[in-house]
Design a protein around this nucleic acid. Sequence first.
DNA 1: CCATTACAGTAACATTTGTTACAGAAGATT
DNA 2: AATCTTCTGTAACAAATGTTACTGTAATGG
Lengths: 210, 210
Amino acid sequence: MIEEIKNNYGTLFENDLLEEINQVGTFKEVPEGFELIKPGSYIKSMPLVLGGAIKILREDNDGDELLLYFLEKGDTCAMTLSCCLGHHKSEIKAIAETDAKLIMIPIEKMEEWTTKYKSWRNFVFESYHQRLIEAIETIDSIAFLKMDDRLLKYLRDKIKVNNDHIINNTHQEIAYDLHTSRVVISRLLKKLEQDGRVKLNRNNIEVIAV
Amino acid sequence: MIEEIKNNYGTLFENDLLEEINQVGTFKEVPEGFELIKPGSYIKSMPLVLGGAIKILREDNDGDELLLYFLEKGDTCAMTLSCCLGHHKSEIKAIAETDAKLIMIPIEKMEEWTTKYKSWRNFVFESYHQRLIEAIETIDSIAFLKMDDRLLKYLRDKIKVNNDHIINNTHQEIAYDLHTSRVVISRLLKKLEQDGRVKLNRNNIEVIAV
DNA sequence: CCATTACAGTAACATTTGTTACAGAAGATT
DNA sequence: AATCTTCTGTAACAAATGTTACTGTAATGG
């Protein structure tokens, strides 16, 4: 495992810390679609992403969803962080977007390392900063963009995290992520196809230019 | 000054730290409407709020605005924090919502204290957590609520931070904060007045029940 | 006091987004 | 092959929000 940790975090953390992560962390491999965090649950360990992508969603009381952002390798979930450190409940839902590899760090260690390792502290601060910025970018999208541009941004993000120009999702699934209706997405995708920017198939969207 | 610091942060910080804040912090009093942070600027000191309220806004490239959240006494601005610690540019705009009292902490001290004081570290983590949650609540509002409910939430927040049931703003100003048009706000406020929930005057909204 | 400006009210209309309903095609199941 | 289910396309319509234009009235400044 140590090799994979070094690949992703080697430049960030000192050797002592890498060694500790290797000692106390639990390696975890999850399949696409696996629910890592349920809203309202308490979290006892924090994931460091080694590979694959994790989708972070917000869910309202009616069960309506909205995609907040994706985590990729080298990332960690700031919400989980703060839930662990502050002993708050989870405010979000996390689903494996692709098959993913993680290391789970027990919450006691996180607190210990915060005191012990400057690099860990910086990592935690930097993670918070990144997530706050991503949350604000999400706000930008919803507040300032119309649905057509939000869809384009979504397609771009999907391509990036999946590293593939083919998006294997139904229109309904996309509608959930963007918190709109299936018909709206179908309508906009059709428009994009007419403009030659995507090619639509069943369960599958081939992105040509977004 | 030390008394005011103790009033707001006495339970949070140990005496040594309070003393240091008193030593190195600069007391600052700003009038309502004062622009504390411009988007895109670099920030060299971090504000701790002693009194009054600060409004944190997001601005897009066209100059369109959206209210993110308010800071009150005992709060600090997580975006500023992370800008300082990570030496990033400001992503937001901060305006004094009311006359406000602040202590400005030089950025070098912040980093020093992060190593030195556990209470400071926890404060910083807790601030990040709060701001992340507020950002997510803002996302909830925009994504899941219609404009009428967003307006109600806005009125409630205003009452809270100003500690006054009279809101001294024009419809246009409210429209800016919620990123919509003046006509829409006038329309919705009129509806609220007809329902007996507010009383409308020039430059001034008397909130009865929201 | 008069002229000017800022603010609020309202109507008419455009646009965007959401909803309902239905049809046909693609897969899956038996 | 016949049936069933899921996914997509489309039309028609409804609701929410945004835009333009014009009004009257309150406040302001000479």
